[in-house]
Write a protein that binds this DNA or RNA. Structure first.
Lengths: 240, 240
DNA sequence: TTGAAAAATTGTAACGGTACAATTATAATG
DNA sequence: CATTATAATTGTACCGTTACAATTTTTCAA
């Protein structure tokens, strides 16, 4: 495999190990070559391999057992949305047809909640985006996003339709760092129900997320209401 | 502070930095001393400090910005249950009075679902634990757990009432490694509703978890149904 | 005063090495 | 044959160093 341009060595090694696991369809608990072999195989230092393995462990691809070896970790169920992958649904639900309908896209003043979470004043501008996502034609979720306009100065329908996050990283060359997510369960309001083609009072899951740049600045506050029929999530638990 | 007995150096340093942040009530975005200072302060090598900082970053206590510094990360809201801390509610909801009522505790054969998730046959024994947890007197969740009896050979009311996980780590000296969690939203059945003192058909969040030892063996499959009025979760998003 | 260039600061990548602890395999013992 | 001790395997902790890339601060010209 050709070495990616901007890829760091340890990231590249992680990718190669991961695709090796995929290619050979390794099962949960199968053992990978020992550290020493990997060092020779990739012609690198121990610490670089260790870093690559730590990355894979964090992603839930492997687990390491001291004195024993490096083993493949495989989650059992598919078609679940990974709550920790910032990159939306595309990856987890790639076998399904995900579409989205834009309901609103405009510059306006933030709600109090949005201002608070974005650390801005009420008179600063934000981009408000409202859309519905569909999975195989059924409603998946209703999504409201507030982008700090000082950071994301321009959005249009095309950007919103594809991937806003991709645009922010590539075109604006900003780096997305981390996020906080808060979840609640509740009952659908009339309006939410009509958007999601469900009945008022039926269950809903609301996920509020605040996304930060690598330098710690919040740039996106969003609130997603899921259709309870479609929403299945998984979360990877690492150490304690 | 005295150095813990079994604590590794980098873990100990992480703890000390964390309590420094707590003690000085540092706010989100406040800068910590630069790497070089920390190295001198703790009289250790750069790699050990880096490892301590990585741990803190993973826990969401700090974030690091290359070329700039190390900054405090603070989540805004309290009273949310951290979905990633295996150690249950005690830590997140310590200001509240959490109690639990044991409904059932017996050795029996697993359900098909439990057998599958624990990687055991249907004729092997498991410990079945069913309990309700209360927060300030209100129902918080209904919890069914299946422990592989080959790994957890004995449980009694006392252990179940305090912390099963603590018992597994301390008394059985097993090490808990990682977990998989799956979430669904749905409507309460009659039985669930009666346990949770809610109405049938009202919203519920179900979290299925499989807990593994460090060596990758699943030992606990549990299914928790939350009272939608009480269930608030947060999740810490790290990198992409 | 503005803005661009240069310098200083500061965290990250990558190398390589020693010692050690947890696990597993093997040999010795009863 | 089961059990216990011993050895081999294998990942983790920790140290120390060089080079580098992202930020911030300072300098200096326009």
């Amino acid at each position: 495999m050709k070495r990616g341009v901007c890829m760091l060595k340890y990231q590249q090694i992680a990718v190669e190990i991961e695709s090796y696991i995929q290619k050979h369809q390794m099962q949960h608990g199968e053992k990978l070559p020992v550290l020493e072999s990997l060092i020779k195989e990739f012609e690198t230092s121990k610490s670089t391999i260790v870093k690559a393995l730590d990355l894979l462990e964090k992603k839930g691809i492997i687990f390491q057992v001291r004195g024993s070896g490096i083993f493949v970790r495989r989650k059992k169920r598919n078609n679940y949305i990974n709550l920790l992958s910032n990159q939306g649904f595309q990856k987890d639900l790639d076998q399904f047809n995900i579409t989205s309908e834009q309901l609103q896209l405009e510059v306006q003043k933030p709600t109090e909640m949005a201002a608070q979470n974005l650390h801005i004043d009420m008179d600063q501008d934000i981009y408000y985006v409202k859309r519905i996502r569909y999975i195989e034609g059924s409603t998946l979720c209703l999504e409201e996003s507030f982008f700090n306009k000082a950071i994301v100065p321009y959005l249009n329908k095309e950007i919103v339709t594809s991937s806003i996050f991709q645009y922010i990283e590539d075109a604006l060359s900003l780096k997305i760092g981390f996020s906080d997510m808060y979840m609640h369960i509740g009952k659908l309001t009339d309006q939410e129900a009509s958007y999601l083609q469900l009945k008022s009072g039926e269950p809903k899951l609301t996920v509020e997320s605040i996304f930060y740049l690598t330098n710690g600045t919040p740039f996106d506050y969003s609130k997603v209401t899921y259709n309870y029929n479609q929403a299945q999530f998984y979360i990877l638990g690492t150490g304690i």
